[in-house]
Design a protein around this nucleic acid. Structure first.
Length: 386
RNA sequence: GGGUAGGUACCGAAGUGGCCAAACGGGGCGGACUGUAAAUCCGCUGGCUUACGCCUUCAAUGGUUCGAAUCCAUUCCUGCCCA
């Protein structure tokens, strides 16, 4: 079994290290809990940070308990939220849960992981049970949290169900008798509630291990599905690579720290450092070959600006050959991006579209039948027509 | 239950009878510059058979008006104060 230092690598905070050492000294596999709420179909790099830590524990011989919050997802974690989350139906949640698991196993060892749905116990509770559970925490405890405090100050609504969330997450810990709970630093409060409930149930209290929050592509807010600033684990290699390349230098340093757990090379050119970062992360979630190809593709396409020899999706125009139609169709067919014709017109007039390396700024331009070439849609997207 | 302030586009926020598809800011998108970086600058940010034209939007429904996001009625929703 590994030492505390290996397991605590990359952690933001452990509450407490002494307790963790004591648990490890028990000499039995510990139950390491991580809860995820399937509120969207994708798992992203931010989740990856915590999942990787869970994997560390697996590798050290401990038991990973991945709790799929099919019930808690219907509430939505209010942590760090300035507004109530939209509520999902149980069916939506279950559909998301399926793809969640597939992605989670890119990091976790399938063989040694236990998957539990928390609906298993919450579904069975009656209202009396809920009341009893609620009687154990005070409203004040829930309300001192910054996210609620802020809403209170701003006069924004806090719905009664939202304050149930930490209680439910805490109850999960009781139900699986967790020894350690992992989460982002924003989860500390929720994890602590779990400790309280465990104590009341006469269980040994779990150790709280929090991981730093990964900033999203914008570099300002945390990586999250609802903000759309994320890189999904199941993203195609090329996209994953590209998204990392578009990140700011400051963020790159954070990604080195958090994702690779090593400092950014100080002497390298920032762009080379970024390519290396992108290559390694892409390799982690795909493989070395795919990562190498993504790098090569990036070089020809962006560094050398050679669209002609780049790997582009092919697009066969339909009957309409005016550029507005071409742009709309190409976006839809090759990139699943919906653009209105007005939108396409704006793009053309805004100088985004290039045909065979020449800007096309007149939205009335029509392509001759049989013409082939590269149609550039925007900075990152282009198709081969013909 | 009573009082009161509100519900405007992705978000915040103007507008309180025509000049409003709706100021301004943020965000987002596109362009220039670059290292697909940051910073900066410029443009765009309802839809349509390609448009100084038309259609749908200012919580919902109905109404008053030549004409409403703006006035009236009802309904739904939220904050605050009181009970």
């Amino acid at each position: 079994m590994s030492t505390v230092s290996v397991l605590s690598r990359g952690c933001a905070k452990i509450h407490s290290e002494a307790e963790l050492e004591a648990k490890l000294a028990l000499g039995r596999p510990l139950r390491i809990k991580l809860g995820v709420d399937p509120t969207a179909p994708d798992i992203h790099l931010g989740h990856g940070v915590v999942l990787t830590k869970l994997r560390d524990f697996q590798d050290a011989g401990h038991e990973a308990i991945l709790i799929i919050g099919d019930f808690t997802a219907m509430i939505g974690d209010p942590s760090g939220r300035s507004a109530t989350r939209p509520q999902l139906t149980h069916d939506q949640v279950l559909a998301n849960a399926k793809s969640y698991q597939e992605q989670a196993f890119k990091i976790l060892d399938h063989e040694r992981a236990r998957i539990v749905f928390n609906g298993e116990w919450f579904e069975a509770m009656c209202f009396e049970d809920v009341i009893k559970l609620n009687s154990r925490v005070t409203l004040q405890q829930m309300l001192v949290r910054e996210d609620f405090r802020e809403r209170l100050d701003k006069g924004l609504p806090i719905r009664a169900h939202e304050i149930q969330y930490p209680i439910m997450q805490g109850w999960d810990s009781v139900m699986v008798r967790a020894d350690v709970e992992l989460g982002g630093t924003d989860q500390l409060f929720n994890i602590m509630v779990g400790r309280d409930l465990q104590r009341e149930e006469g269980q040994p209290q779990q150790v709280a291990m929090t991981m730093p929050i990964l900033e999203g592509l914008d570099g300002r807010q945390k990586m999250s599905k609802s903000l759309g600033n994320y890189i999904a684990l199941n993203e195609p290699a090329g996209d994953m690579f590209g998204k990392i390349m578009s990140v700011s230098d400051a963020l790159m340093a954070r990604y080195y720290d958090i994702l690779l757990r090593e400092p950014m090379p100080a002497d390298a050119h920032p762009m080379d450092a970024k390519k290396e970062l992108a290559r390694r992360i892409t390799a982690r979630f795909h493989d070395e070959t795919a990562a190498a190809r993504a790098l090569e593709e990036f070089n020809t396409r962006f560094s050398a600006r050679d669209l002609e020899s780049a790997e582009l999706p092919g697009y066969a125009p339909g009957l309409a050959r005016d550029f507005v139609s071409l742009v709309v169709e190409a976006y839809a067919q090759c990139f699943s991006v919906t653009r209105s014709r007005s939108d396409a017109r704006r793009l053309i007039e805004g100088g985004s579209i290039q045909w065979r390396g020449e800007k096309v700024t007149d939205s009335k331009t029509v392509l001759e039948a049989g013409e082939t070439g590269v149609l550039r849609l925007d900075k990152t997207r282009a198709v081969r027509v013909g």
